[in-house]
Design a protein around this nucleic acid. Structure first.
Lengths: 194, 194
DNA sequence: GTCTATAAGCAGATAGAC
DNA sequence: GTCTATCTGCTTATAGAC
Protein backbone atom coordinates (compact mmCIF):
# COMPACT_ATOMS: atom_id res chain seq x y z
CA UNK A 1 0.00 0.00 0.00
CA UNK A 2 1.10 3.54 -0.70
CA UNK A 3 1.77 5.89 2.15
CA UNK A 4 2.33 9.15 0.24
CA UNK A 5 -0.58 11.10 -1.17
CA UNK A 6 -1.39 9.81 -4.61
CA UNK A 7 -2.11 11.93 -7.65
CA UNK A 8 -5.87 11.65 -7.37
CA UNK A 9 -5.67 12.90 -3.82
CA UNK A 10 -3.45 15.84 -4.72
CA UNK A 11 -5.80 16.78 -7.54
CA UNK A 12 -8.78 16.87 -5.21
CA UNK A 13 -6.96 18.93 -2.60
CA UNK A 14 -5.65 21.37 -5.19
CA UNK A 15 -9.14 21.76 -6.57
CA UNK A 16 -10.49 22.42 -3.09
CA UNK A 17 -7.96 25.18 -2.57
CA UNK A 18 -8.60 26.79 -5.92
CA UNK A 19 -12.37 26.64 -5.57
CA UNK A 20 -11.98 28.43 -2.26
CA UNK A 21 -9.61 31.04 -3.63
CA UNK A 22 -11.00 31.64 -7.10
CA UNK A 23 -14.34 29.86 -7.41
CA UNK A 24 -15.35 27.36 -10.07
CA UNK A 25 -15.53 29.80 -12.98
CA UNK A 26 -12.14 31.23 -12.04
CA UNK A 27 -10.41 27.86 -11.82
CA UNK A 28 -9.01 26.12 -14.91
CA UNK A 29 -7.94 22.50 -15.24
CA UNK A 30 -4.48 23.77 -16.05
CA UNK A 31 -4.24 25.66 -12.77
CA UNK A 32 -5.35 22.55 -10.90
CA UNK A 33 -2.77 20.40 -12.65
CA UNK A 34 0.02 22.84 -11.90
CA UNK A 35 -0.85 23.10 -8.23
CA UNK A 36 -1.15 19.34 -7.93
CA UNK A 37 2.05 18.75 -9.87
CA UNK A 38 0.16 16.49 -12.25
CA UNK A 39 0.07 16.40 -16.01
CA UNK A 40 -2.87 16.87 -18.35
CA UNK A 41 -3.23 13.19 -19.15
CA UNK A 42 -2.93 12.29 -15.51
CA UNK A 43 -5.83 14.47 -14.52
CA UNK A 44 -8.09 13.15 -17.26
CA UNK A 45 -7.14 9.61 -16.34
CA UNK A 46 -8.39 10.05 -12.77
CA UNK A 47 -11.37 12.29 -13.47
CA UNK A 48 -13.80 12.74 -16.31
CA UNK A 49 -13.19 16.48 -16.40
CA UNK A 50 -13.51 19.68 -14.47
CA UNK A 51 -17.08 19.07 -13.20
CA UNK A 52 -16.24 15.60 -11.88
CA UNK A 53 -13.18 16.87 -10.08
CA UNK A 54 -15.12 19.79 -8.65
CA UNK A 55 -17.81 17.43 -7.39
CA UNK A 56 -15.21 15.38 -5.51
CA UNK A 57 -13.73 18.57 -4.04
CA UNK A 58 -17.05 20.15 -3.07
CA UNK A 59 -18.36 16.92 -1.54
CA UNK A 60 -15.30 16.57 0.63
CA UNK A 61 -15.48 20.18 1.77
CA UNK A 62 -19.14 19.73 2.65
CA UNK A 63 -18.41 16.58 4.64
CA UNK A 64 -15.61 18.21 6.58
CA UNK A 65 -17.69 21.26 7.39
CA UNK A 66 -20.53 19.12 8.61
CA UNK A 67 -18.28 17.04 10.84
CA UNK A 68 -16.68 20.16 12.33
CA UNK A 69 -20.02 21.76 13.11
CA UNK A 70 -21.40 18.55 14.54
CA UNK A 71 -18.48 18.33 16.95
CA UNK A 72 -18.95 21.96 17.90
CA UNK A 73 -22.63 21.63 18.73
CA UNK A 74 -22.17 18.35 20.57
CA UNK A 75 -19.99 20.09 23.17
CA UNK A 76 -21.50 20.70 26.61
CA UNK A 77 -22.99 24.06 27.59
CA UNK A 78 -26.11 26.13 27.23
CA UNK A 79 -27.56 26.94 23.83
CA UNK A 80 -26.09 30.44 23.87
CA UNK A 81 -22.71 29.10 24.97
CA UNK A 82 -22.56 26.58 22.16
CA UNK A 83 -23.70 29.09 19.57
CA UNK A 84 -21.20 31.60 20.87
CA UNK A 85 -18.42 29.03 20.65
CA UNK A 86 -19.47 28.18 17.12
CA UNK A 87 -19.57 31.80 15.97
CA UNK A 88 -16.29 32.64 17.65
CA UNK A 89 -14.25 29.64 16.74
CA UNK A 90 -11.09 30.35 14.83
CA UNK A 91 -11.70 30.99 11.16
CA UNK A 92 -9.86 32.13 8.10
CA UNK A 93 -12.26 35.07 7.91
CA UNK A 94 -10.81 36.84 4.88
CA UNK A 95 -10.92 33.67 2.82
CA UNK A 96 -14.60 33.31 3.60
CA UNK A 97 -16.70 30.16 3.66
CA UNK A 98 -15.52 27.58 1.11
CA UNK A 99 -19.10 26.45 0.57
CA UNK A 100 -20.84 29.80 0.85
CA UNK A 101 -18.68 31.31 -1.86
CA UNK A 102 -19.83 28.66 -4.35
CA UNK A 103 -23.29 30.09 -3.96
CA UNK A 104 -22.11 33.04 -6.08
CA UNK A 105 -20.77 30.84 -8.82
CA UNK A 106 -23.16 30.75 -11.77
CA UNK A 107 -21.82 27.48 -13.19
CA UNK A 108 -22.04 25.69 -9.85
CA UNK A 109 -25.59 26.84 -9.21
CA UNK A 110 -26.61 25.90 -12.76
CA UNK A 111 -25.38 22.32 -12.32
CA UNK A 112 -27.73 20.30 -10.10
CA UNK A 113 -25.02 17.81 -9.22
CA UNK A 114 -22.51 20.43 -8.09
CA UNK A 115 -25.18 22.39 -6.35
CA UNK A 116 -26.58 19.59 -4.23
CA UNK A 117 -23.81 19.36 -1.58
CA UNK A 118 -24.00 23.12 -1.07
CA UNK A 119 -27.75 23.10 -0.74
CA UNK A 120 -27.86 20.10 1.56
CA UNK A 121 -25.15 21.33 3.87
CA UNK A 122 -26.79 24.69 4.49
CA UNK A 123 -30.19 23.08 4.94
CA UNK A 124 -28.67 20.69 7.45
CA UNK A 125 -26.88 23.49 9.30
CA UNK A 126 -30.02 25.55 9.66
CA UNK A 127 -31.90 22.55 10.99
CA UNK A 128 -29.12 21.70 13.40
CA UNK A 129 -28.99 25.25 14.76
CA UNK A 130 -32.76 25.33 15.02
CA UNK A 131 -32.57 22.26 17.26
CA UNK A 132 -30.01 23.91 19.53
CA UNK A 133 -32.18 27.01 19.84
CA UNK A 134 -35.35 25.02 20.44
CA UNK A 135 -33.49 23.12 23.15
CA UNK A 136 -32.48 26.44 24.72
CA UNK A 137 -36.07 27.63 24.66
CA UNK A 138 -37.31 24.38 26.18
CA UNK A 139 -34.79 24.74 29.01
CA UNK A 140 -35.92 28.30 29.61
CA UNK A 141 -32.59 29.80 28.53
CA UNK A 142 -34.19 31.67 25.67
CA UNK A 143 -37.49 33.42 25.19
CA UNK A 144 -40.23 31.20 23.85
CA UNK A 145 -41.34 34.21 21.82
CA UNK A 146 -38.44 33.71 19.41
CA UNK A 147 -38.98 31.53 16.37
CA UNK A 148 -36.10 29.02 16.55
CA UNK A 149 -35.98 28.48 12.77
CA UNK A 150 -35.93 32.21 12.02
CA UNK A 151 -33.30 32.86 14.67
CA UNK A 152 -31.21 30.00 13.31
CA UNK A 153 -31.35 31.40 9.78
CA UNK A 154 -30.40 34.83 11.12
CA UNK A 155 -27.37 33.43 12.92
CA UNK A 156 -26.11 31.49 9.91
CA UNK A 157 -26.71 34.58 7.79
CA UNK A 158 -24.65 36.72 10.17
CA UNK A 159 -21.77 34.34 9.64
CA UNK A 160 -22.05 34.27 5.87
CA UNK A 161 -22.68 37.99 5.67
CA UNK A 162 -19.83 38.63 8.09
CA UNK A 163 -17.47 37.06 5.57
CA UNK A 164 -18.84 39.34 2.86
CA UNK A 165 -18.30 42.45 5.00
CA UNK A 166 -14.82 41.33 5.98
CA UNK A 167 -13.80 40.81 2.38
CA UNK A 168 -15.32 44.14 1.37
CA UNK A 169 -13.34 45.90 4.10
CA UNK A 170 -10.27 43.71 3.68
CA UNK A 171 -10.34 43.41 7.44
CA UNK A 172 -11.69 40.92 9.95
CA UNK A 173 -13.21 43.75 12.02
CA UNK A 174 -16.71 43.80 10.49
CA UNK A 175 -16.94 40.03 10.86
CA UNK A 176 -16.09 40.20 14.55
CA UNK A 177 -18.45 43.11 14.99
CA UNK A 178 -21.31 41.29 13.31
CA UNK A 179 -20.77 38.23 15.50
CA UNK A 180 -20.64 40.42 18.61
CA UNK A 181 -23.77 42.23 17.50
CA UNK A 182 -25.66 38.99 17.00
CA UNK A 183 -24.58 37.60 20.35
CA UNK A 184 -25.41 40.94 21.97
CA UNK A 185 -28.95 40.72 20.67
CA UNK A 186 -29.25 37.09 21.72
CA UNK A 187 -28.14 37.76 25.28
CA UNK A 188 -30.12 41.03 25.53
CA UNK A 189 -33.34 39.17 24.81
CA UNK A 190 -32.29 36.50 27.31
CA UNK A 191 -32.28 39.30 29.89
CA UNK A 192 -36.01 39.54 29.28
CA UNK A 193 -36.24 36.08 30.88
CA UNK A 194 -36.99 36.70 34.52
CA UNK B 1 -28.77 66.04 -28.49
CA UNK B 2 -29.50 62.30 -28.63
CA UNK B 3 -32.52 60.91 -26.90
CA UNK B 4 -31.92 57.18 -27.36
CA UNK B 5 -29.41 55.34 -25.21
CA UNK B 6 -26.02 55.52 -26.83
CA UNK B 7 -23.57 52.69 -27.19
CA UNK B 8 -21.47 53.67 -24.22
CA UNK B 9 -24.56 53.64 -22.06
CA UNK B 10 -25.68 50.25 -23.32
CA UNK B 11 -22.21 48.83 -22.69
CA UNK B 12 -22.26 50.00 -19.08
CA UNK B 13 -25.74 48.64 -18.45
CA UNK B 14 -24.90 45.30 -20.05
CA UNK B 15 -21.79 45.07 -17.93
CA UNK B 16 -23.79 45.82 -14.80
CA UNK B 17 -26.19 43.00 -15.60
CA UNK B 18 -23.45 40.52 -16.37
CA UNK B 19 -21.42 41.40 -13.29
CA UNK B 20 -24.54 40.75 -11.25
CA UNK B 21 -25.33 37.47 -12.99
CA UNK B 22 -21.88 36.02 -13.55
CA UNK B 23 -19.33 38.13 -11.67
CA UNK B 24 -16.22 39.74 -13.13
CA UNK B 25 -14.26 36.56 -13.74
CA UNK B 26 -17.27 34.98 -15.40
CA UNK B 27 -17.92 37.89 -17.74
CA UNK B 28 -16.09 38.25 -21.05
CA UNK B 29 -15.84 41.34 -23.26
CA UNK B 30 -17.52 39.34 -25.97
CA UNK B 31 -20.54 38.62 -23.80
CA UNK B 32 -20.81 42.30 -22.95
CA UNK B 33 -20.66 43.30 -26.60
CA UNK B 34 -23.32 40.82 -27.58
CA UNK B 35 -25.69 41.92 -24.85
CA UNK B 36 -25.13 45.56 -25.70
CA UNK B 37 -25.44 44.94 -29.41
CA UNK B 38 -22.07 46.58 -29.94
CA UNK B 39 -19.06 45.44 -31.90
CA UNK B 40 -15.55 44.76 -30.69
CA UNK B 41 -14.11 47.98 -32.04
CA UNK B 42 -16.97 49.93 -30.62
CA UNK B 43 -16.37 48.71 -27.13
CA UNK B 44 -12.66 49.43 -27.26
CA UNK B 45 -13.37 52.86 -28.67
CA UNK B 46 -15.46 53.83 -25.64
CA UNK B 47 -13.49 52.00 -22.96
CA UNK B 48 -9.88 51.05 -22.43
CA UNK B 49 -10.80 47.45 -21.75
CA UNK B 50 -12.64 45.14 -19.40
CA UNK B 51 -11.38 46.71 -16.15
CA UNK B 52 -12.35 50.25 -17.23
CA UNK B 53 -15.80 49.14 -18.24
CA UNK B 54 -16.23 47.22 -15.02
CA UNK B 55 -15.22 50.27 -13.02
CA UNK B 56 -17.90 52.36 -14.71
CA UNK B 57 -20.47 49.63 -14.05
CA UNK B 58 -19.48 49.03 -10.42
CA UNK B 59 -19.36 52.75 -9.64
CA UNK B 60 -22.82 53.28 -10.99
CA UNK B 61 -24.21 50.33 -9.05
CA UNK B 62 -22.61 51.64 -5.88
CA UNK B 63 -24.09 55.11 -6.40
CA UNK B 64 -27.56 53.74 -7.03
CA UNK B 65 -27.43 51.52 -3.98
CA UNK B 66 -26.32 54.38 -1.81
CA UNK B 67 -29.06 56.67 -3.05
CA UNK B 68 -31.71 53.99 -2.50
CA UNK B 69 -30.57 53.31 1.05
CA UNK B 70 -30.32 56.99 1.85
CA UNK B 71 -33.91 57.51 0.77
CA UNK B 72 -34.98 54.51 2.84
CA UNK B 73 -33.34 55.70 6.05
CA UNK B 74 -34.51 59.28 5.61
CA UNK B 75 -38.15 58.17 5.86
CA UNK B 76 -40.01 58.97 9.07
CA UNK B 77 -40.44 56.43 11.85
CA UNK B 78 -38.61 54.88 14.78
CA UNK B 79 -35.20 53.27 14.34
CA UNK B 80 -36.71 49.78 14.37
CA UNK B 81 -39.38 50.80 11.88
CA UNK B 82 -36.88 52.21 9.42
CA UNK B 83 -34.59 49.22 9.76
CA UNK B 84 -37.55 46.90 9.33
CA UNK B 85 -38.63 48.77 6.20
CA UNK B 86 -35.09 48.55 4.85
CA UNK B 87 -34.74 44.84 5.51
CA UNK B 88 -38.18 44.05 4.12
CA UNK B 89 -38.19 46.22 1.04
CA UNK B 90 -38.74 44.38 -2.20
CA UNK B 91 -35.61 42.71 -3.49
CA UNK B 92 -34.52 40.33 -6.17
CA UNK B 93 -33.40 37.93 -3.45
CA UNK B 94 -32.22 35.06 -5.62
CA UNK B 95 -30.01 37.37 -7.66
CA UNK B 96 -28.35 38.57 -4.51
CA UNK B 97 -26.61 41.86 -3.85
CA UNK B 98 -24.89 43.24 -6.96
CA UNK B 99 -22.14 44.71 -4.84
CA UNK B 100 -21.86 41.98 -2.23
CA UNK B 101 -21.31 39.32 -4.87
CA UNK B 102 -18.23 41.15 -6.16
CA UNK B 103 -16.68 40.51 -2.80
CA UNK B 104 -16.24 36.88 -3.88
CA UNK B 105 -14.53 37.82 -7.11
CA UNK B 106 -10.77 37.35 -6.83
CA UNK B 107 -9.93 39.69 -9.70
CA UNK B 108 -12.10 42.50 -8.34
CA UNK B 109 -10.65 42.22 -4.85
CA UNK B 110 -7.11 42.12 -6.27
CA UNK B 111 -7.60 45.39 -8.17
CA UNK B 112 -7.58 48.37 -5.80
CA UNK B 113 -9.51 50.53 -8.26
CA UNK B 114 -12.32 48.05 -8.75
CA UNK B 115 -12.39 47.22 -5.10
CA UNK B 116 -12.75 50.76 -3.79
CA UNK B 117 -16.44 51.38 -4.63
CA UNK B 118 -17.35 48.08 -2.98
CA UNK B 119 -15.33 48.83 0.13
CA UNK B 120 -16.57 52.39 0.46
CA UNK B 121 -20.21 51.54 -0.03
CA UNK B 122 -20.25 48.90 2.68
CA UNK B 123 -18.27 51.11 5.05
CA UNK B 124 -20.76 53.90 4.43
CA UNK B 125 -23.75 51.59 4.92
CA UNK B 126 -22.48 50.31 8.24
CA UNK B 127 -21.88 53.85 9.44
CA UNK B 128 -25.29 54.98 8.29
CA UNK B 129 -27.02 52.10 10.07
CA UNK B 130 -24.96 52.73 13.18
CA UNK B 131 -26.32 56.29 13.22
CA UNK B 132 -29.89 55.08 12.97
CA UNK B 133 -29.33 52.64 15.83
CA UNK B 134 -27.57 55.23 17.99
CA UNK B 135 -30.47 57.56 17.37
CA UNK B 136 -32.87 54.83 18.49
CA UNK B 137 -30.84 54.29 21.65
CA UNK B 138 -30.74 58.04 22.38
CA UNK B 139 -34.52 58.19 22.04
CA UNK B 140 -34.89 55.26 24.39
CA UNK B 141 -36.31 52.97 21.72
CA UNK B 142 -33.44 50.55 22.04
CA UNK B 143 -31.35 49.32 24.94
CA UNK B 144 -28.27 51.40 25.59
CA UNK B 145 -26.52 48.13 26.39
CA UNK B 146 -26.32 47.29 22.69
CA UNK B 147 -23.26 48.44 20.76
CA UNK B 148 -24.73 50.35 17.79
CA UNK B 149 -21.78 49.61 15.51
CA UNK B 150 -21.84 45.89 16.29
CA UNK B 151 -25.60 45.71 15.88
CA UNK B 152 -25.34 47.58 12.58
CA UNK B 153 -22.74 45.14 11.25
CA UNK B 154 -24.91 42.24 12.34
CA UNK B 155 -27.91 43.63 10.49
CA UNK B 156 -26.00 44.23 7.27
CA UNK B 157 -24.51 40.77 7.62
CA UNK B 158 -27.96 39.21 7.97
CA UNK B 159 -28.90 40.76 4.66
CA UNK B 160 -25.77 39.66 2.83
CA UNK B 161 -25.86 36.23 4.44
CA UNK B 162 -29.56 35.94 3.72
CA UNK B 163 -28.77 36.19 0.02
CA UNK B 164 -26.21 33.41 0.37
CA UNK B 165 -28.70 31.13 2.11
CA UNK B 166 -31.39 31.91 -0.44
CA UNK B 167 -29.10 31.05 -3.33
CA UNK B 168 -27.95 27.88 -1.60
CA UNK B 169 -31.57 26.80 -1.12
CA UNK B 170 -32.72 28.19 -4.45
CA UNK B 171 -35.57 29.70 -2.47
CA UNK B 172 -36.31 33.05 -0.88
CA UNK B 173 -37.46 31.36 2.32
CA UNK B 174 -34.17 31.39 4.25
CA UNK B 175 -33.69 35.05 3.40
CA UNK B 176 -37.12 35.97 4.76
CA UNK B 177 -36.53 33.80 7.79
CA UNK B 178 -33.19 35.42 8.53
CA UNK B 179 -34.72 38.89 8.28
CA UNK B 180 -37.57 37.85 10.55
CA UNK B 181 -35.12 36.33 12.99
CA UNK B 182 -33.05 39.51 13.14
CA UNK B 183 -36.10 41.71 13.63
CA UNK B 184 -37.39 39.26 16.22
CA UNK B 185 -34.20 39.63 18.23
CA UNK B 186 -34.24 43.39 17.83
CA UNK B 187 -37.80 43.75 19.09
CA UNK B 188 -37.32 41.14 21.84
CA UNK B 189 -34.51 43.15 23.35
CA UNK B 190 -36.63 46.29 22.99
CA UNK B 191 -39.11 44.55 25.29
CA UNK B 192 -36.41 44.77 27.97
CA UNK B 193 -36.93 48.52 27.83
CA UNK B 194 -39.44 49.27 30.55
C1' DG C 1 -0.82 5.82 -14.93
C1' DT C 2 1.59 9.48 -17.21
C1' DC C 3 3.22 11.96 -21.25
C1' DT C 4 3.01 14.54 -25.62
C1' DA C 5 0.43 16.04 -29.70
C1' DT C 6 -3.39 18.15 -31.54
C1' DA C 7 -7.50 20.92 -31.84
C1' DA C 8 -11.74 24.03 -31.93
C1' DG C 9 -13.10 27.85 -29.69
C1' DC C 10 -12.80 31.70 -26.31
C1' DA C 11 -10.30 35.70 -23.84
C1' DG C 12 -8.68 40.05 -24.33
C1' DA C 13 -6.95 42.86 -26.88
C1' DT C 14 -4.41 45.88 -31.19
C1' DA C 15 -4.36 47.85 -35.99
C1' DG C 16 -6.14 49.96 -39.55
C1' DA C 17 -9.82 50.51 -43.04
C1' DC C 18 -14.21 52.90 -43.69
C1' DG D 1 -17.65 55.71 -34.11
C1' DT D 2 -17.94 51.22 -35.97
C1' DC D 3 -16.19 47.29 -38.54
C1' DT D 4 -13.16 43.50 -39.90
C1' DA D 5 -8.71 41.26 -39.56
C1' DT D 6 -5.24 39.51 -36.83
C1' DC D 7 -2.75 37.83 -32.77
C1' DT D 8 -1.08 35.44 -28.43
C1' DG D 9 -2.33 32.64 -25.05
C1' DC D 10 -5.76 30.06 -22.38
C1' DT D 11 -9.67 26.60 -21.97
C1' DT D 12 -11.14 22.07 -22.04
C1' DA D 13 -10.66 18.52 -23.72
C1' DT D 14 -9.39 13.86 -27.05
C1' DA D 15 -6.02 10.43 -29.05
C1' DG D 16 -2.53 7.60 -28.78
C1' DA D 17 2.34 6.48 -27.57
C1' DC D 18 5.15 4.88 -23.67
Amino acid sequence: MKTSANTSERLIESTRELLWERGYVGTSPKAIQQRAGAGQGSMYHHFDGKPALALAAISRTAEEMRAAIDAQFAAPGTAVERISAYLRRERDVLKGCPLGRLTQDPDVMADATLRRPVEETFAWLRTRLTDVLAEGAARGELSGALDPAATASAIVAVLQGGYVLARAANSTTPFTEAVNGALGLLTAQAATQD
